[in-house]
């Protein structure tokens, strides 16, 4: 057990390291001079050269890389050229907003999608199942930008119930409603679908037939035998989706102007703040891998049949 967990942690570190190398290479290939945005247009050649030297950009790539790696190992993600602050500080400021919206969304999704999936699965072929799965297909086919804009159209323009943008944390939850819906609707559909098919798979197993043969009622079979086993693949998908959500909320944050990691990335890219772009790539990859790792480990504890991860 411990060995397989250690192996997983090792793999995760490799993944994050590869992403960091990729980020480094990408930023070095990027066109444009990073000092251009830091200095006023009137800056002289000498000032520019001095800044380049100060940032270490005149060194050979290998020295730059070693410095960068040394910094990373010591928790230093670099220095943002746009804010003139350490990247880690800015990420720490931006992270709570992203976490807040995605975690609320993740919890709500859990409470909606699993019951929908389970009910759909056990009533396979019924009207309820058909209606729910029809809705799921519709939700899965809607583009996220379109959903955001439709939410704005309905709740802001037509009904005038919600504020259109902004973020004030949990203090003003009305600002969170639309981002949470936009973040969760697709995931909800995917998890519900997975829940349904996994329930159907489990109900076809021999031990379910056996349980019926022993005279257990339908609901006893569902709750005692089918539910737990059917949830295992669902948790895997759910974990993957939460991980992706934490890392990939660029567009939703942009539309609803939430000061999270996504908006930070867009502004860093627009301002050619390469250290910031580099560190947001690394941080998102690390978050994604970490959540995945936690889910994988959790699954091994829940499902004793999985020995080797």
């Amino acid at each position: 057990m411990l060995r397989s967990i250690l192996k997983r942690v090792g793999y995760m570190l490799i993944v994050v390291w590869v992403v960091s190398v990729m980020a480094f290479v990408l930023m070095r290939c990027a066109p444009g001079d990073p000092t251009a945005t830091m200095l006023p247009d009137t800056a002289t050649e000498e000032q520019r050269a001095a800044l380049t030297a100060e940032l270490g950009l005149d060194q050979p790539y290998i020295i730059q890389y070693l410095r960068y790696m040394k910094g990373l190992l010591m928790g230093d993600l670099g220095h943002s050229t746009q804010y003139n602050q350490p990247c880690a500080t800015i990420i720490a400021q931006r992270l709570p907003a992203t976490l807040c919206v995605s975690l609320i969304s993740a919890v709500i999704v859990l409470f909606i999608s699993i019951p929908v999936g389970v009910i759909s699965g056990v009533t396979r072929g019924s009207m309820t199942d058909f209606a729910m799965m029809f809705l799921v297909v519709i939700l899965q086919s809607m583009a996220v930008v379109w959903v955001c804009v439709l939410l704005l159209l309905v709740f802001v323009v037509k009904l005038d119930w919600l504020p259109s943008m902004g973020y004030y944390g949990l203090a003003k939850p009305q600002y969170l409603i639309m981002p949470v819906i936009a973040m969760g609707y697709r995931m909800c559909a995917q998890v519900a679908r997975m829940g349904r098919s996994s329930m159907i798979d489990v109900l076809n197993e021999d031990y379910i037939t056996c349980a019926y043969a022993r005279g257990l009622s339908k609901w006893e079979v569902y709750s005692k035998y089918a539910l737990k086993n059917s949830l295992i693949p669902v948790i895997t998908i759910y974990g993957l989706q939460v991980a992706a959500m934490l890392a990939g909320a660029v567009i939703i944050e942009q539309i609803f102007t939430i000061p999270g990691i996504g908006t930070m990335l867009v502004s860093a890219v627009n301002n050619r703040d390469y250290p910031m772009v580099q560190s947001s790539l690394i941080v998102t990859a690390a978050m994604f891998s970490l959540v995945n790792l936690v889910v994988d480990i959790a699954i091994t504890f829940i499902d004793p049949r999985i020995k080797e991860v």
Binding site: M22, A244, L265, V266
Partner: peptide, 23 residues
């Protein structure tokens, strides 16, 4: 397989914004 994990760890939109906006 590690390469697939690396691709998964970088979200599509993040990669898209970085590559398309910078390059």
């Amino acid at each position: 397989m590690r390469a697939t994990e690396v691709s998964m760890a970088v979200p599509t939109m993040t990669l898209g914004v970085v590559i398309m906006a910078i390059f």
